[in-house]
Simulated assay, not measured.
Amino acid sequence: MRIYGNRLLTTLPGQLTRPTSAKVREALFNIWQGSIIECCWLDLCAGNGSMGAEALCRGAKEVIGIETYGKACKVIKQNWQKFARKNQNFKVIKGDVLKMLKTLEGQQFNHIYFDPPYTSKLYQPVLEAIITHKLLRKDGEIAVEHNPKLWQSMAINELKIRQEKYYGNNAITFYVSQ
Rank of each mutant, 00 (worst) to 15 (best):
K149R: 02
I112C: 10
G14N: 12
L98E: 06
I142G: 05
K82T: 06
S177T: 13
L104C: 08
L8F: 09
T68W: 09
T132N: 12
I156A: 05
T10V: 02
L16S: 14
C39S: 15
Q163F: 05
E62M: 08
S120R: 08
T103S: 15
Q107M: 12
A22P: 01
E141T: 02
E105G: 01
T103A: 12
K102T: 12
V63S: 04
R25D: 04
E158S: 09
Q78C: 01
N110D: 01
I93L: 15
S35I: 15
G49Y: 13
M100D: 08
Q78F: 00
K138P: 00
L127P: 03
N30Y: 03
M51S: 02
L28Y: 03
S21E: 07
I93P: 08
K165L: 13
I172F: 02
K23R: 14
W80E: 13
K138H: 04
R58Y: 08
I37W: 05
L127G: 05
T20Q: 07
I3E: 02
R137W: 01
S153M: 12
Y123W: 03
L122R: 00
R58V: 04
T119V: 02
V63K: 02
N110G: 03
N89K: 07
T103L: 07
S153E: 15
G65K: 03
V176Y: 02
W151L: 03
S177W: 13
E54P: 01
L16H: 08
T173G: 00
Y166M: 01
S21F: 11
K86Q: 13
R25L: 03
Q178P: 13
L56G: 09
F109D: 08
N157M: 09
V97I: 10
Q152H: 05
G168D: 14
N30H: 11
Y69K: 03
F29W: 06
A155G: 02
M51H: 04
G140M: 00
G14V: 04
N89W: 00
N147W: 09
L44R: 07
G140L: 01
E26K: 14
K86L: 07
E38D: 15
M51L: 15
E128D: 11
A27E: 05
H146K: 07
I93A: 12
C45A: 15
L44C: 14
E67M: 04
G49N: 14
D43G: 09
K23C: 11
E105P: 04
K86I: 11
A129E: 08
A155T: 14
R2P: 06
G65M: 00
F174A: 02
N147G: 06
R7M: 09
V24G: 08
I66C: 13
V92Y: 10
